[in-house]
């Protein structure tokens, strides 16, 4: 390839100092990423066992195992790159938001047809991702429209098939993270990350995207507008987990932010203080399915929580980003 001679004389400043990112990258991989997926796999295995033991939707054992496994996924789901993203695995774990109602449609279709895809994990993994994962299972456990459809025997088989599929998906993600992790800790020619900076930028991206998703989607969708709040759009509202997901994601992102800012104590303190404020607000809310967005009083409190997350975003992009070689290009960051 020919690069015009002028190019070097032009505008791209050379990287001044290449910092050694290895200690932070090792720390994030060993203590933040890998344990989360190992815990996820353990919890999804328990979920399969619980579904085998008792597949009735009201089963306390099944609902508890479901809650724990979903907790583990929410605590890892900000790490949506590499093995998590391959083949839309993350969406197959949790297909949300489901703006066009694909999940209930897919499940109803299966139940009505008594579709044999539930008979083997391999065939279930091939169906629309809207029919897979924790939100599909939530419908089968908590949505009266679904828990009364078709035959009890088929619904039971479907619940077990979804649980098994979640577990297989979690195992595949976890196994692949073991082999993928060295790409982050040993960047270079054999890695998708050519440098430690690029690996750090991937992790920083996970932090920013995670904050954005929690503020704009987990809270923004149910908030809607003052004239038209949308409590029915809250994530996992049927199992009353909406606020819990906000809290769990903040706790996970706080841990990631602390590790990424380890070399910059002041930034670490600023971020941690902002996270503490947001988590305090979430814990004080006492509105598990975020139904309060429809009342003026409840709405103010959810908006305050959202604002406190946006404060974290502002600190991260203003203070942490620049230390990781993220240049705030006017167009590079625009996304249009």
């Amino acid at each position: 390839m020919r690069t015009l001679a002028l190019a070097t004389a032009l505008l791209v400043p050379l990287c001044a100092h290449a910092q050694d990112r290895t200690p932070i990258l090792m720390d994030v991989v060993e203590t933040h990423i890998l344990p989360r997926f190992t815990q996820l796999s353990g919890a999804t295995e328990t979920l399969v066992t619980a579904a085998q033991d008792d597949c009735t939707p009201e089963s306390e054992g099944l609902r508890t195992a479901y809650g724990t496994a979903f907790d583990r996924w929410i605590s890892a789901s900000h790490l949506r790159f590499g093995p998590t993203e391959t083949g839309d695995r993350a969406f197959a774990m949790a297909f949300w938001p489901d703006t066009k109602g694909f999940t209930p449609k897919t499940l109803s279709r299966l139940i009505t047809a008594e579709d044999a895809v539930v008979n083997t994990p391999e065939t279930y993994a091939e169906i629309s991702i809207a029919g897979r994962g924790f939100l599909a299972l939530e419908r089968m456990l908590y949505d009266p429209a679904m828990t009364q459809q078709g035959s009890a025997a088929y619904r039971c088989a479907l619940i077990r098939a979804i649980a098994t599929d979640i577990d297989r998906n979690a195992d595949a993600i976890t196994a692949d993270w073991q082999t993928y992790a060295p790409n982050l800790t040993q960047p270079g020619a054999d890695s998708p990350y050519r440098s430690g900076d690029e690996a750090m930028q991937q992790l920083y991206g996970a932090l920013i995207t995670g904050l954005e998703f929690t503020a704009d989607t987990r809270l923004g969708r149910p908030l809607g507008t003052f004239e038209r709040p949308r409590p029915n759009r809250a994530e996992a509202r049927r199992s009353e987990r909406s606020l819990r997901h906000v809290e769990l994601s903040l706790i996970a992102l706080r841990d990631l932010a602390a590790r990424l800012s380890f070399d910059h104590p002041q930034i670490a303190t600023d971020l941690d203080t902002a996270f503490a404020r947001a988590i305090d607000r979430a814990q004080a809310l006492d509105d598990p399915a975020l139904v309060g967005v429809a009342t003026p009083q409840g709405r103010i409190r959810v908006e305050a929580l959202q604002q406190s997350i946006n404060d974290i975003r502002a600190i991260a992009s203003a203070e942490l980003g620049p230390t990781l070689g993220i240049r705030a290009g006017f167009n590079a960051l625009d996304g249009d």
């Binding site: 390839m1 020919r2 690069t3 015009l4 002028l6 190019a7 070097t8 032009l10 505008l11 791209v12 400043p13 240049r327 290009g329 006017f330 167009n331 590079a332 625009d334």
Partner: peptide
């Protein structure tokens, strides 16, 4: 066919 690349900071 690719002809060339021109390095330009934040070109859009």
């Amino acid at each position: 066919t690719f002809k060339d690349a021109l390095a330009l900071e934040d070109v859009c």
